[in-house]
Design a protein around this nucleic acid. Structure first.
Lengths: 336, 336
DNA sequence: CTGTTAGCGCATTCAT
DNA sequence: ATGAATGCGCTAACAG
């Protein structure tokens, strides 16, 4: 079957291509009658404008990119849901790029995207990222960027986060309230500001409760799960086993739980765990695992909304603005 | 900063645009020397080819679409991971569309995608879909489609599934082995072949074990969670409470578990549950919930691979081929 | 091996 | 209110 184009429509109707184009774009300078004729034929033949021709001409793509560390993770899944919903409402398309926490991939994606494929970028940094020259380049190329969760503090643009410092503080306070004296913090990337803030909340909560902060109670985990496993196992096998653990991300909370089970450490009798987590299946979790749950869906919606708002205002350089949403502390070790 | 184009490169080097184009595409008919000059300047100026111009000309987009019911669900998250990985390897871009189980949205997306935005489509049907005319149109427009999991039996193309009939049988047999006499099946969409197959496995397992199959033990759930909740509650509040439940999807397993807890039905003493589920956090699940786990990541990879293979062969009409992967039965109620 | 020319489908400027 | 002509940036057919 032949492709339906403006040209073929024009021919069929004995009109000029430009007239058909204007009619379909609802231009004010086309008579109602002509518009009607054009629209009805377009509908009949299921005319679909070629997006590449249109984007080439208009220099805008109606497409945004989402760059993420990973997706097999409830937090990012929910964020994508939020983004996709807002994108649909605005008639935009969503491209997904996964970095798998690799700085190299992140930089490659971004350098590629300066070619005009997308009108804007939503992103959450990879844990490896410390050099931000690729982000700087993106900004210089006038493509609006909105960061969410794992933001880049040093770049002036819109950032959507949650109250990480307070959450870290609350989580630690929660463990202290449950009677913990020796609390360990499982960090996942010292490059990321969210980690730093959660960590600072942890440290301050200890201080405010007159508990000793010990450097060796902070376990710096990374992207290598094998290695993380070993580090946690070492911690929990030592003579100085903590009686509380605060995991800064879901994956570490789970890993930690698994090690505890392996070592037959009684939860929550001998050791209490709290972690960041966004499982919708929270009710199925082991009853001893309390969580800090971020409003992931809302984060996605807010981030996307901020981007689309900038499109409407035609401002390519976004103002430096922080949107802070609140996480929720969900207790699950109280009744047991 | 001015945009770097073939034209600007050509001007700078005193070459024709076509020569530059060929050099960058590593054409055999360009001298090594010229290639070198072109490549080094392109690199220096960070030349990025305009994807829209290129796609318009080549009539191919290096982009695929993934159409899914939802994503806040471990199965589909893992599938996307697999797809994205293969897409990256092949230098393709991935567009995501979520139908939220709406037939209307599914049809809209697909009709839109006949415009050439993508070179191929990977999809899993919405639960509402029974009319397949939109799928037929997609095929007629010569865009290759690969279905995974929620496939369309009636359309001849590549389909990637798991052994749903056998899984349904095994799950039911598992409950029977644990001593269940009255087993209920929670269906999620009678339109979908995967539901039908899982259901048939359930029915046959009952028969093979000389257990009575009762129509009222099949609960036809749908997309409305409130309604599903009520139906499950009614089932579990009746005088004929089943002693085993087989949930055909993760969401229903979770819902069922919640209702049991609400009604204070002892699990697994009074009632046993098994459900399809793809939680990576399986170790954190309540010990009583056994699962059938699909190889989601692998499904994504296989589906994407099949699509890219068809691109390489330049065959737009895919052969009718079924790839069946195996799910895994994970027991978690044996040791307790 | 390289240059000239044409055209992908669309939106827009300039005519009328 | 409509048509003709131009060009977005690129690839490819054709010419030399």
């Amino acid at each position: 079957m032949d492709q339906v184009t403006l040209k073929s429509l024009a021919k069929e109707l004995n009109l000029a291509v430009s007239t058909v184009s204007r009619a379909l774009n609802d231009s004010y300078e086309i008579s109602a009658e002509t518009k009607e004729k054009v629209h009805s034929l377009a509908k009949k033949l299921n005319y679909q404008p070629n997006p590449y021709a249109s984007s080439l001409r208009k220099r805008s793509s109606n497409t945004i990119a989402v760059i993420l560390p990973e997706i097999a993770n409830n937090f990012f899944s929910l964020v994508i849901n939020g983004i996709e919903e807002i994108a649909q409402e605005n008639g935009y398309h969503v491209l997904i790029y996964l970095t798998h926490e690799s700085h190299q991939k992140e930089a490659d994606f971004i350098r590629h995207l300066t070619n005009g494929r997308v009108d804007g970028v939503l992103m959450s940094l990879s844990g490896e990222t410390d050099d931000i020259s690729h982000l700087q380049e993106l900004k210089n190329s006038n493509i609006p960027v909105v960061f969410f969760d794992r933001i880049c503090e040093r770049l002036s643009t819109v950032k959507v986060t949650t109250n990480d410092y307070e959450s870290g503080y609350q989580a630690t306070q929660h463990l202290i309230n449950k009677g913990c004296k020796q609390i360990s913090y499982l960090a996942f990337s010292k490059n990321l500001s969210i980690d730093q803030k959660r960590r600072q909340g942890y440290i301050d909560a200890l201080k405010d409760n007159q508990l000793l902060f010990r450097e060796d109670m902070v376990i710096n985990c990374g992207n290598d799960q094998e290695d993380n496993y070993k580090k946690i196992k070492t911690l929990l096998s030592s003579s100085q086993v903590p009686d509380g653990i605060f995991a800064s991300v879901e994956l570490l909370a789970i890993l930690c739980y698994e090690v505890c089970r392996e070592l037959e450490l009684n939860i929550p009798g001998k050791i209490k765990i709290i972690g960041f987590s966004n499982l919708r299946t929270a009710s199925l979790l082991h009853p001893s695992l309390s969580t800090i749950t971020q409003p992931a869906f809302e984060i996605g919606k807010q981030a996307a909304s901020a981007l689309f708002q900038s499109f409407r205002k035609k401002q390519l350089v976004l103002e430096d603005k922080k949107i802070e949403l609140l996480s929720e502390l969900i207790e699950r070790d109280s009744t047991k």
